[in-house]
């Protein structure tokens, strides 16, 4: 028989309402509140061996200490499964459920499951680490939510393969792992097309990511008063790539002096970018970094000045996070250097 520990807040643990939110954690070796429902749904296969109850305020205001105390209590009953909540749309309760599941999973290797309403702040904080069953916003759906949690927890503890998050009723964890399909991708595509044409339901295997929309900055009013910098994602570095910037999937960028230089020689600069045919820019680096033209414009007074360094990275298969970080860092450094505008050449 699998052993189940159940985490509850002061309200569901039947201590009291808001006035009891500061209570320290305690453990009872029996089901409490919704634990009785949990016990009945678990049937013969598993039993509730302990309820761990903690006040919402206490947990969220002493998150490390509370987590540690609860973890010790949980560990003392050697459970196979930890069920936390469900917390529905209760924010502090959601945070506590997420945190205790994360801890028990990581430190004790226990199967952990909680339940929350998608807008509970605990979802954003913990869904990547913890499986969270989707619930309604309040306890009216307790029975249904608890049933889903029990079903999923038993599958997990038995080591059964899971269907998709939507089929299993938990919130997607933002991770896609390799899988083997029954049918060739081509066949799935034609099947999907026939369903789409026939007005039948289908589910896309790729969903839109969180793509940013960046508003272009307003135009520079007077270029003759502007300091202009050169920035490129085309992978053009001083030969030998002194900063060892990655040829693809860059995590960083470099900044290199142009001071006193009129031209970029193909002997001294080289693009190591892995995402395009670099032979043309390696014949003549100005095709990527137009230093020659900018020096002319500087002499003509069309721009006030070319900034004395250029910034370069490789923009190919860069993750969104790294791209954002690199972009923000370059922009910050340009601002600090009092550069008015940048000419960004992309490949």
């Amino acid at each position: 028989m699998f052993r189940v520990a159940h985490y509850l807040n002061q309200f569901f643990g039947q201590v009291g309402g808001e006035d009891q939110a500061a209570i320290e954690p305690f453990m009872a070796e029996k089901p409490l509140g919704p634990g009785l429902l949990l016990k009945s749904l678990l049937g013969e296969e598993a039993e509730v061996v302990a309820s761990i109850v903690c006040g919402d305020d206490y947990f969220t205001e002493n998150i490390e200490l509370a987590g540690q105390k609860c973890l010790e209590m949980i560990n003392s009953v050697r459970p196979d499964i930890l069920i936390a909540g469900p917390a529905f749309n209760a924010g502090r309760y959601g945070l506590a459920c997420g945190e205790i599941c994360r801890l028990a999973q990581e430190k004790l290797g226990v199967v952990c499951l909680t339940g929350m309403y998608p807008e509970n702040p605990g979802v954003d904080l913990y869904r990547r680490q913890v499986k969270i069953v989707e619930t309604g916003s309040n306890a009216a759906g307790m029975r249904q939510s608890m049933l889903q949690m029990v079903t999923l927890a038993l599958k997990l503890v038995r080591g059964e393969a899971l269907q998709s998050p939507s089929q299993e009723g938990y919130l997607p964890q933002g991770i896609k792992e390799a899988a083997i399909s029954q049918d060739l991708a081509a066949t799935r595509a034609v099947d999907m097309l026939l369903r789409k044409l026939g007005g039948e339901p289908f589910s896309s295997e790729i969903m839109a990511g969180d793509l940013d929309v960046v508003e272009p900055a307003p135009a520079v009013k007077d270029l003759s008063q502007a300091v202009i910098a050169l920035v490129t994602e085309g992978g053009m570095f001083p030969k030998g790539n002194p900063d060892r910037i990655e040829a693809a999937r860059a995590t960083r960028f470099g900044r290199y002096s142009l001071a006193g230089q009129e031209f970029l020689s193909a002997q001294e600069y080289e693009s190591i970018h892995r995402g395009y045919d670099t032979s043309h820019v390696n014949q003549d680096p100005h095709r990527l970094l137009p230093l020659d033209v900018l020096r002319d414009l500087e002499r003509e007074g069309f721009i006030k000045e070319l900034f004395e360094e250029y910034f370069a990275t490789t923009g190919v298969a860069t993750t969104l996070d790294n791209g954002k970080r690199i972009g923000e860092a370059i922009a910050t450094q340009l601002k600090e250097a009092k550069v008015d505008a940048a000419l960004v050449t992309a490949t």
């Binding site: 899971l162 896609k176 390799a178 899988a179 083997i180 991708a185 799935r188």
Partner: peptide, 14 residues
């Protein structure tokens, strides 16, 4: 991976 679709490999959400 096969961009022609000549593969059983895919991704599954977790």
């Amino acid at each position: 991976l096969s961009q022609a679709g000549l593969t059983y490999l895919t991704t599954k959400e977790r």
